[in-house]
Design a protein around this nucleic acid. Structure first.
Lengths: 193, 193
DNA sequence: TTAAAATCTTGAACTAGTTCATTTTTTGAT
DNA sequence: ATCAAAAAATGAACTAGTTCAAGATTTTAA
């Protein structure tokens, strides 16, 4: 699905508005393991995935990775806090496969919103959805055990579970990689009965 | 601070826009323990706190409370997922003290945004900030131990720590009330040396 | 002012999840 | 196809945080 038809799930655009949006899109290919954002830099853009797989994560002083978000086809990702405040990032955004992305710059978005307020609306709806989603995640994680968290995540995002290495899933779900391995073994045992 | 001057920290409003906004504000007083939202209902409005203290939480099937958000003076609160999708809430929003609020209805907001796109911008900026904040919270909670989580929260929101009962703080920070009691005792021990 | 209700404290027994060290399996580059 | 590197599995020892139960303190309402 093109980024324009994706936007049109929220709002409808005139020919002119479509063109205006396309001019601020910067297409780019990133290779596996490459970084799109690194801590310290200002995150000057939001990233839209055309195809491939990205994730954002941060590194504790002890060197542990904590995954914040996964992004497959048609998802947006960035260090959002850094993006909206235009202050230094604390996250990495990294390609987990060769990935085609569209970068949408902060200044360009703000300018576009002034010229075409319809985009103000689009980015409002997207931000609201993202916030609602993020609250839902917080909620899921507070109530559930490690096993329950994994099962819920797997039924909701089977494609993510299949596409990212297990240690990344574990760090997203808030458990050690070893423990997720044991959890999955236990689940498999139940299924086989 | 009035809700209008609060809005004007993000955008500036003409006289006419101010009036338009004020007409969709419904002022209301809720007594301690009273609910503004309950699971199952559609959350038809966002709630702005004039003075007092609210919180949102959900109840697990086992009857445990999990606090999602606190809201003191000048904060917004709601079951945001229910609000934006206009689907049944899963959270309670409850008054922890006698509280004056302003309710801002979903339909009224959407109408207002059509008539005055400047509010589209306001609600975009608010939603973006809320999302960034929520990501930051997720990040803080993944990396830290229970003690660290409490210390960080206390330095960032001393007024919340002073104003809500400890068992609510514990359920927000993802630990048992008993353990938070022990954590605080240990911290006090360190401070006294 | 007082009694009931709500909240907080404390300790002992427990458990879900971690850590560490080692082995096995999978992946990817040549 | 082969080999090195990355990822996953496994087991044993450990620990941060939970649960339960009982008592102490604070808050509330009449």
């Amino acid at each position: 699905m093109s980024i324009i038809s994706n936007i049109e799930r929220y709002i409808s655009l005139t020919e002119k508005e479509q063109k205006a949006f396309e001019t601020i899109c910067e297409k780019r290919v990133v290779e596996k393991h490459e970084f799109l954002v690194e801590p310290g830099q200002n995150c000057y853009c939001q990233i839209y995935v055309i195809n491939g797989a990205l994730r954002s994560y941060f590194l504790t002083p002890e060197g542990e990775e904590h995954t914040i978000q996964f992004a497959l086809e048609d998802w947006f990702i960035s260090d959002f806090n850094s993006y909206i405040t235009q202050s230094p990032a604390s996250l990495y955004v990294q390609a987990c496969e060769r990935t085609e992305v569209i970068e949408i710059g902060y200044l360009e978005v703000e300018q576009l919103c002034i010229e075409y307020p319809v985009f103000e609306r689009f980015f409002r709806l997207v931000a609201q959805k993202a916030f609602a989603f993020s609250q839902k995640r917080a909620l899921a994680n507070l109530g559930l055990s490690a096993t329950e968290r994994f099962l819920e995540f797997e039924t909701q995002y089977p494609n993510i579970v299949n596409r990212y290495p297990q240690y990344m899933l574990a760090s997203y779900l808030g458990m050690s990689a070893e423990f997720l391995s044991k959890v999955r073994k236990k689940i498999k045992g139940f299924e086989e009965r």
